[in-house]
Design a protein around this nucleic acid. Structure first.
Length: 439
DNA sequence: TCCGCTTACACGTTTGAAGGGA
DNA sequence: ATCCCTTCAAACGTGTAAGCGG
């Protein structure tokens, strides 16, 4: 694979635009690395088809996202964000034969919200000092949610996407260097009730809050101990792997079972027990953007649910390392919502966001979601984000539905490996990073 | 009838205030 | 007065099961 780092050569020299340096005047040099904590646990869930409960008041994820960062400039400030992007353009249903099947096209994408890590902004040294948890991130199916939780559709597949942005504050994000990371094993199905009993068992066995549902006695231990639970190989293997790995990467057997019907047929190759699980490829991207839209919040570029018939294919060899740099639109906070909903001048522009999968299936409606940033800091959030404030009400469903995005064929894992050349930096501003919304 | 969603519930963890001792 | 530790209750996070509604 061509390392995404090659991309950096486009930027490592004198920046194409003066704003290319970070807000501190430091130029991001080394490549930022992001690794996922508990990759084995994630893989165990992933092999069984991770499900995340979404509720009206909001539900935490389990496992929750926890990452390690390296390669940041210690004295530069960064902002860490996470959002959820659809895996594909379909709605699923759980079949009696224990697998998910496509049940139709995806619902129009709800307002896409971005969760701001509570520590943001913080120095690179802070981010690298310890692992960063998104424990308090909550998922909801309430499209009118006023708490800033991330809104998802039930029976749809998503994966979290992490953004590290070099910026002193939310206001300077527009000038900032940022990178985006995804981890294939963190993909999940949003559900209002668990469908796969194996997932239920895994949750009960691993989530301390669910201890009350564990069997009596031996398996009332944390997952660092071998569970007495029988009949769930993933769980057992995970524990075995941890015991035998001796600190090295756990050898999680690849996809011995996949609840994704299409994966079974498609020979999905993600999540092998490769070396350095969770390691990411990444690329540095500069974020020039016109300042004229500063009063607005982040603008989602409306990552389109890639019309993929097959959740199969894809997660790439980068995925094999546990994570992937996601080709994406390196831009922020530029275009008001209604603009974001307009058709892009060139949807096949190489800067157009790439998805993990691509197929010839029809594109889903409502692909240009509304993005908003949520900070768990109540007042702090108001303070730091207030300047992004726009119209103060939720916007769902988005009136009128935006035209569907037809994603380029490169909108695949391959693109994640190869990246692409940003020929014209100025054009980036046409592709907002986060779409705009309020809650 | 089926399927997805909501709600109340029991059980466990987490959190933070209050109190006591060094 | 300050710090540290313990205790305890409230808040919060879980999955379950029953019921509702399209």
């Amino acid at each position: 694979m061509q390392s995404i780092r090659d991309l950096k050569t486009n930027f490592s020299g004198p920046p194409a635009v003066p704003v290319a340096t970070g807000p501190d005047g430091y130029l991001q040099q080394g490549s930022i690395r992001m690794t996922l904590e508990d990759p084995d646990l994630w893989k165990t869930f992933h092999e069984n088809g991770t499900e995340m409960i979404i509720t009206k008041p909001g539900r935490r994820m389990f496992p929750h996202c926890k990452i390690n960062l390296a390669g940041l400039i210690p004295c530069a400030k960064y902002i860490l964000l996470v959002d959820m992007v659809p895996e594909d353009g379909f709605r699923y249903k759980w079949k009696v034969d224990d697998k998910w099947e496509v049940a139709g096209k995806a619902e129009p994408q709800p307002p896409c919200r971005t969760y701001l890590h509570p520590d943001s902004p913080a120095l690179g040294s802070h981010w690298m000092k310890q692992s960063m948890s998104f424990l308090k991130l909550k998922l909801t199916n309430n499209t009118l949610d006023q708490h800033g939780h991330i809104i998802l559709h039930s029976m749809h597949r998503y994966h979290p996407r992490f953004h590290i942005i070099q910026a002193d504050d939310m206001f300077s994000v527009r000038w900032s260097v940022f990178q985006t990371f995804t981890f294939p094993e963190t993909a999940f199905m949003a559900v209002t009730a668990y469908q796969n009993t194996k997932i239920t068992k895994l949750k009960i066995n691993h989530n301390p809050f669910a201890k009350g549902f564990r069997d009596e006695g031996t398996n009332s231990k944390r997952y660092t101990h071998r569970s007495s639970y029988e009949g769930y190989e993933g769980d057992e293997d995970l524990l075995k792997g941890k015991a035998e790995a001796g600190g090295g990467p756990a050898a999680v057997k690849e996809e011995r079972y996949s609840p994704w019907a299409t994966e079974r047929e498609g020979g999905r190759t993600e999540s092998p027990g490769g070396n350095a699980p969770g390691d990411m490829y990444n690329a540095e991207q500069l974020v020039p953007a016109p300042a004229s839209y500063l009063p607005y919040r982040f603008h989602g570029y409306g990552k389109s649910p890639s019309p993929t018939a097959s959740v199969a294919s894809s997660h790439s060899s980068a995925s094999a390392r546990g994570g992937a740099f996601e080709s994406r639109v390196p831009d922020v906070a530029t275009v008001p919502d209604h603009d974001a909903a307009k058709p892009r001048p060139n949807p096949h522009h190489p800067l157009h966001p790439h998805h993990h999968h691509e197929t010839g299936a029809p594109p889903p409606p409502g692909v240009l979601g509304h993005h908003a940033i949520y900070s768990p800091y109540g007042a702090a959030s108001e303070q730091s984000l207030g300047q992004w404030g726009g119209p103060g009400h939720a916007q769902y469903p988005p009136p009128p539905p935006p035209p569907p995005h037809h994603l380029p064929a490169e909108y695949s894992s391959q693109a994640m490996h190869h990246g692409y050349h940003h020929g014209n930096v100025a054009e980036w501003s046409q592709y907002p990073l986060f779409s705009y919304s309020c809650w």
